[in-house]
Structure formats: structure tokens, C-alpha cells
Design a protein around this nucleic acid. Structure first.
Length: 494
RNA sequence: GGCCCGGUGGUCAAGCGGUUAAGACUCCGCCCUUUCACGGCGGCAACACGGGUUCGAGUCCCGUCCGGGUCACCA
């Protein structure tokens, strides 16, 4: 069976040239972990920074691991994160299809081409027979290595099951260049004749990757550093085909601690988990971007970056070689920063559902409550617990009325409430200013510092020691009737 | 175990032969203040170790130790 050289020429002709092209190539596992997201982000950033093309490719060559709805998670996450792709299964493109299972025959053809070129061979061994156990990959251990092309072809034609293996040179070294790690050289004898085409006819990840990256014109191959060790074999593959080797960008992993990568198995949060925990997409992206990359030059001190700013500032030089531990505390800090940077209107809109989880009474104004919260929560999920006292007065003891700094104790508090209640009852308007001015004037009249009066009022109104907002704001939100009811209740306790 | 890669405060990180070794998070103080938070100011805290090279080393070289990755017909 002669090879159809025209096929290869046609494939070659379709490859876009001249622009930076990067690809995010997840396998659909139904779970976008933080490391994955960061890889997607960096890949997107490299393309956007260069005004290039960002491609989405789905790597589903493992028939046994397909998961329902998994590609949807990928689309949804990328869309939510604004990591838009220019080519992909859903939008098409010049080098379609973008799903590996739909490119099946391509891989077979290229594998046979490589056999023809002498850089691959048919192997008919049972899995155990090739004996790759130690670090010593002597080619002499695999009998199929010696087969003449004619013999091998005859056995293939007779229908004998086979795999296609890469033929690694026995001697010499291979050097490849990584944009982050620099030049890395290994001895060829430490490399195994890896399988390219599996017994089921599907390519291995390693082979499909090289073929697709070439055929799709990928200029920068971005991936996790776990592939660093197989990069020399990729290089040999490119060389075997006579193709230009792309720029490799191997990213060090995101760790859960010094010993372990982030993983679903350890219960580490995925992007979707973080969202559920109340983290904002922009904060997550900002934090994750800085886990493994840092800006240089005049923006070296900058920590808050929008996606656009990242795209502008991103460079391979700033990438870190060492693994980074994911710190939820620092993510939380970024989230708080983003929450505070929102306009009051946007914040109120975002906070309202969380406020209403505990504050069901619609007469209690969500916007005013939100205003108290913006500087006081790090995550939206902090909210319900902080504001539940507006809905119903908690049980509390008289000890709360004692506060050293405010110079209050039960007796003082009693006097303060006795004075405050009639004043508040007589206030013409129930506005922030009216309540504030009334209380401040009263304190002056009673010859006590503001805190001495404010403390018992706030305690009686809220029923808890720590509250978002002060006495004035809380009374204003509760309304005159409820405020007076609570203050009288407090007075009864004293 | 072989091969590859890494190692600056608890964490993320600047640093590219000469710096009092940045900055951020966390933690602790102080100020502001109507509790808490926000904001402001200050503080604790690091070049894994040992040899070289050099007038001079966190920065270059070698070794040791520690950590990670990889050695699948998984990706």
C-alpha cells in the first residue's frame, strides 16, 4: 500500500503561517482545576500579547475516560473567564476538525509516513514483551526492532495486531529548547521507543499532539512541566518529519502544598468550586496569573491586573521555573480588592441575593445594607451571616453592654437608652443625618463621649458585639418602629 | 533506582557580580473611629548546606542535602 503523498501536501498547504498561534488542548475530564485554568490563561495571553490566534482543541483520544458534559464545562469556563478562542470545535477554522477523535485517520497516515522515513516501526509484541522496566532502553530488547520493512509489512497485511513505535537513535544526545528552562540535553539511550499508534488504531497523546500542533500551525506549545521529560522525544518526532520545532513553554505546576499538586482527589477546588465559594472570576484570574508569572520593569510592583492589562504586560521572561503553592488567603485578599473596586451599584446588585438569604423582610433595604458590606466582606458568601441580625434580633446577654473603651457598663447603658429612646421617638425625620445629629447632640448634652452613647444603642439595636456599620446606620435601616422596639427590649434587660 | 528540573521570609515573589536583599499576603503593634472593617503608619520574618572562581557571590562553577517531574498501548 503506497503512501498518498498528495494528502500530505494538501495538509501542509492548509497550515496558516506567519502569526503566533497557540492552543489550549484539554482532555475532557469534566473538571477545570486551577492549574489547567492557569495554563489556559497563559496560552491565551501569549496569543493576545502577540496579536495572534488562540485555538481550542479537544483531546479525547482516550476512549475509556470520556465523561458526559465535560466539554461543556470547558466552553463555559473559558467563556466566563473571557478567554475567547478564534478557532475550535464550536467556531470552526481553517484546520478543522478540532476534536482529536475526528482526526483519527490523519494520525495513522502520518505514522506510516514516519515508518517509511525510518523513524518508526511496527511492533507486534504483547504489552509485557518489550521489557521496558529500568531506565535502560536498549533497542535490542524488542525483537520487532530488527524486523525488515518487508517482514513487518507482511505481518501487518496478514492482519496481525500491532502498535507503531517511535524509533529513537541508539547513540547520541538530543537537545531541545524551552522558553522558560532554556536548553536541555539528554542522552538518547535514556529515551524509550514510545508507542505512537495504539493497538486500537488511535494515536497516543504524545503523537497526536505533535501531529496536530504541526498541522494547526501552532507556534508556541504551552503545557505543564510534567511533559518536560518527553519533550526530547517530541523533538525527534519533529525532526523525523522534517518539521520546524515550535517554541516550548513548560509551566511549573500549581501545588496544594510542597509535596502535592492541586488535584480533585485531594479535594482541591476547581474553578467552579471557587466560584461557588464566593470568589469573583476576575479575582481568580488575577491571582492565578501571578502564581507563576510576575511583571517586570516599571510595572514590577503592580498586582492588580485586568485581562487587558495582562495581555499587554505578559512576557515569557517573567515566568517562574519553580512550582507555586496555591494560597487561598491571598486569593481571598484579591477577591476583597475586587469587591471594593466595584461601583456601589454593581456591588449592591451582586450582594443582594446573599443579603436576602437571611434578610427576608423586603422592607429592610438591600442597597443600604450592601453599602455597609462593601468594605467589610472578602467574599460574597461572608454576607448572609453578617446581616442576619437585621432580620431578627439575636439572643444576647447584658454583658455586651459593657465596653471598656467606650466607658460603658449596664448602669451607664441604662441611662443612655433611657435618654436615647425619647429623643429618637421625637425625631422629625428618620434619616441618616437626623439620627446621627440627634445622637451626637444628645451625647454632648449628657456630657459623655460619642462612643458611650453609641455603644449601648448599637448593642440594643443589633444584639451582637460586632456589626457591619455603626449605631446610626443600623437604626436607619431597621426603621424607627423596629429600632425603638429593640431599644426598649434592651432597656428591659438592664 | 536512572534521567530531567527546581531550591530568596510561613506563602507568592523582585533580584541577572557591588542593594541597608524590593513588594504583596498572613501575623503583631499604633493612628483614624460609633463596634468591626476600610484607610494610614510601623514591626517580626529569607538567600538550603559545603567547597571553589573573584577585590567582591543570593547572583557564576562543583559537590551534598531537600523537593518535584518522568520512566503506560493515560493524558
Amino acid at each position: 500500500m503506497a503512501l498518498d503523498m498528495k494528502y500530505f501536501e494538501e495538509m501542509e498547504a492548509k497550515i496558516p503561517k506567519g502569526k503566533v498561534r497557540t492552543r489550549f488542548a484539554p482532555s475532557p475530564t469534566g473538571y477545570m482545576h486551577v492549574g489547567n485554568l492557569r495554563t489556559a490563561l497563559y496560552t491565551w495571553l501569549i496569543a493576545r500579547n502577540a496579536g495572534g490566534t488562540f485555538i481550542l482543541r479537544i483531546e479525547d483520544t482516550d476512549q475509556g475516560r470520556l465523561i458526559e458534559g465535560a466539554t461543556e464545562v470547558i466552553y463555559r469556563t473559558l467563556a466566563e473567564c473571557h478567554l475567547d478562542h478564534d478557532e475550535g470545535p464550536d467556531v470552526g477554522g481553517p484546520v478543522a476538525p478540532y476534536i482529536q477523535s475526528q482526526r483519527r485517520d490523519t494520525y495513522g497516515k502520518y505514522a506510516r509516513l514516519l515508518v517509511e522515513k525510518g523513524h518508526a516501526y511496527y511492533c507486534f509484541c504483547e504489552k509485557a514483551d518489550s521489557g521496558e522496566d529500568s531506565g535502560d532502553f536498549s533497542r535490542r530488547l524488542d525483537p520487532c526492532w530488527f524486523l525488515s520493512p518487508e517482514e513487518a509489512q507482511a505481518r501487518v497485511d496478514s492482519g496481525e495486531p500491532y502498535v507503531i513505535r517511535q524509533r529513537i537513535p541508539e547513540e547520541g544526545t538530543t537537545t531541545f529548547r524551552d522558553a522558560i528552562f532554556g536548553d536541555i540535553t539528554v542522552e538518547n539511550k535514556t529515551l524509550d521507543d514510545q508507542v505512537l499508534i495504539k493497538r486500537d488504531g488511535l494515536p497516543t497523546y504524545n503523537f497526536a499532539n505533535v501531529i496536530d500542533d504541526h498541522l494547526m500551525g501552532i507556534t508556541h506549545v504551552v503545557r505543564g512541566s510534567e511533559y518536560l521529560a518527553s519533550a526530547p522525544k517530541y523533538n525527534l518526532l519533529y525532526e523525523g518529519f522534517g518539521w520546524e520545532v515550535p517554541t516550548y513553554v513548560h509551566c511549573s505546576p500549581v501545588m496544594r502544598d510542597a509535596q502535592n499538586k492541586m488535584s480533585k482527589r485531594h479535594g482541591d477546588p476547581s474553578y467552579e468550586d471557587l466560584k461557588e465559594q464566593g470568589f469573583l472570576t476576575d479575582a481568580i484570574l488575577n491571582y492565578v496569573a501571578l502564581l507563576g508569572w510576575s511583571p517586570r520593569g516599571d510595572i514590577a510592583e503592580q498586582e492588580v491586573f485586568s485581562l487587558e492589562e495582562l495581555a499587554k504586560a505578559f512576557d515569557l521572561e517573567g515566568m517562574s521555573k519553580s512550582p507555586a503553592i496555591f494560597d487561598i488567603e491571598k486569593l481571598t485578599h484579591f477577591n476583597a480588592l475586587y469587591l471594593r473596586a466595584m461601583s456601589p451599584e454593581d456591588f449592591s446588585k451582586a450582594a443582594e441575593p446573599y443579603i436576602r438569604q437571611t434578610v427576608k423582610d423586603e422592607s429592610l433595604p438591600a442597597a443600604e445594607i450592601a453599602a455597609l458590606l462593601q468594605a467589610r466582606c472578602e467574599k460574597l458568601t461572608d454576607i448572609p451571616e453578617k446581616v442576619s441580625f437585621f432580620q431578627s434580633l439575636p439572643e444576647y446577654g447584658v454583658d455586651l453592654f459593657t465596653n471598656k473603651k467606650s466607658k460603658t457598663n449596664p448602669e451607664v447603658s441604662k441611662a443612655m437608652l433611657e435618654a436615647a429612646i425619647p429623643m429618637l421617638e421625637g425625631l422629625p425625620d428618620w434619616t441618616q443625618d437626623a439620627i446621627h445629629d440627634g445622637l451626637v447632640a444628645l451625647a454632648e448634652q449628657l456630657e459623655v463621649k460619642n462612643a458611650t452613647l453609641m455603644w449601648p444603642v448599637r448593642i440594643a439595636a443589633a444584639g451582637q458585639a460586632v456589626t457591619p456599620g455603626g449605631a446610626v446606620e443600623i437604626c436607619r435601616i431597621l426603621g424607627r418602629k423596629e429600632t425603638l422596639r429593640r431599644l426598649k427590649l434592651g432597656l428591659d434587660k438592664l
